[in-house]
Design a protein around this nucleic acid. Sequence first.
DNA 1: ATATTATATAACTAAATGGATATGTTCGAT
DNA 2: ATCGAACATATCCATTTAGTTATATAATAT
Lengths: 124, 124
Amino acid sequence: MTPASQLDATFTALADPTRRAILARLALGEASVTELAQPFAMSQPAISKHLKMLERAGLISRGRDAQRRPCRLEAQPLAEANDWLERYRQLWEANFQRLDALLDEMKAQAKAVTDKNQGKNQGE
Amino acid sequence: MTPASQLDATFTALADPTRRAILARLALGEASVTELAQPFAMSQPAISKHLKMLERAGLISRGRDAQRRPCRLEAQPLAEANDWLERYRQLWEANFQRLDALLDEMKAQAKAVTDKNQGKNQGE
DNA sequence: ATATTATATAACTAAATGGATATGTTCGAT
DNA sequence: ATCGAACATATCCATTTAGTTATATAATAT
């Protein structure tokens, strides 16, 4: 799987609130399909489909315990999604800082104009 | 917009490689629609649709400069997605540590059995 | 006024998603 | 051998997505 398509699959998986809840639950430890389904007002096959998507995306893997198919988190792809966001967060913050700096500059200039026109500082 | 559906929209937006590339480009600063479209082998309306999704998800906003509609990043929803992942990363890592601890324990036990059976330590 | 540039909207298509119900399959229990 | 539990698969449906081409709108340039 190409890195891009891995990210596609990971973010697609994260786009559904049911799947995010399942992942959140699995962050606490393994769970069977029935256990995972229990909180949701949704049929068991619907949950199985979500789990299949999560498995194809590599976000979970499954074992075997009698009839149970315990699911567990696979953290790697999630870490990559996290990395993607982290990598750009720096730039977004830098952008924010530039914007902040610009606003400060505009504000200072406006104030300077006011001061000049009025000959005194009336605050803001 | 509920926090969950904001995350839905954000992760849905991030699930497409074209949109991720657009966001990556915008992390460097504002850009017009044409500029954003230029790297892609895709029609202009296709890009406009991607931008519309990004805008509806609150990930970008648009200004006006003559005929241009410059797009700029809105970092807030991305920060929330980042937070979601960060929040669970801790737990995933904790899981890893538990797994490591378990493996260490099993290995130690296996070694103890070996030692007991053979009366000496042959290493591993 | 008209032509050009930049962008948006409409209408259409194919494929993917998210759900349902119905039916298989697998494995332990009786 | 059969029953029940846990889970998967099949089929169906409505909606969304991602792209297309064709056309409309908005603002500038001539």
